[in-house]
C-alpha cells in the first residue's frame, strides 16, 4: 500500500509547515502550495487523498478551489479540510467541506486527525 498523499494549500509559510509536519507525522506524504492560482493548476495533475485548504489565498480563493475539487469526478474521494480563522467565512462556502478547522489549529490535534484518516481507509 502506497503512502497517502496530502496537498496543503496555505499562503502562511509557517502554518503550512506545521500542517505539513503534522500530516507527515500522521503518515502522509505532503506537498505545499502557497498560491491559489498554482493550486488550481496543480489540482488537475495530482490525486490527493486529503487537501488542507486555506480560504484567504492570493489570486484564486479557497472557495473557488473547493468548488473545483467538488466538480472534478477524478477527485471524488478527496477529503477537504478547510482551515480558516473566520467561522462566518466557513459558513458561506458554496460547496460542502469534509471538515472545518478553525484556526489556531493545534499541531497535536491535526496529527491525531491525520493518523485517524491514514488508517481509516486502509
Amino acid at each position: 500500500m502506497s503512502e497517502k498523499f496530502a496537498l496543503i494549500i496555505e499562503d502562511e509559510e509557517d502554518l503550512a509547515t506545521i500542517f505539513s509536519e503534522a500530516l507527515k507525522a500522521g503518515g502522509f506524504q505532503t506537498e505545499i502550495i502557497y498560491d491559489g492560482y498554482i493550486a488550481q493548476q496543480r489540482l488537475n495533475e495530482v490525486y490527493p487523498d486529503v487537501v488542507v485548504l486555506d480560504l484567504n489565498l492570493p489570486h484564486v480563493d479557497g472557495n473557488q478551489l473547493l468548488n473545483q475539487i467538488r466538480a472534478d469526478p477524478r477527485l471524488e474521494k478527496t477529503r477537504v479540510l478547510v482551515a480558516t480563522a473566520d467561522a462566518n467565512m466557513a459558513e458561506m462556502l458554496d460547496s460542502e467541506a469534509d471538515l472545518i478547522l478553525l484556526k489556531p489549529i493545534s499541531f497535536i490535534q491535526l496529527r491525531m486527525m491525520a493518523e485517524r484518516m491514514g488508517t481509516a481507509e486502509e
Partner: peptide, 23 residues
C-alpha cells in the same frame, strides 16, 4: 489585530508542539 497577532502566535505554538512531539 486578529489576523496579524494571532497568526504568528499560533505559528509559535504549532512549532513548539512539533518540537515537543519530537518530530
Amino acid at each position: 489585530v486578529s489576523h496579524e497577532l494571532r497568526t504568528p502566535l499560533s505559528a509559535i505554538q504549532g512549532f513548539a508542539e512539533m518540537l515537543q512531539a519530537e518530530v
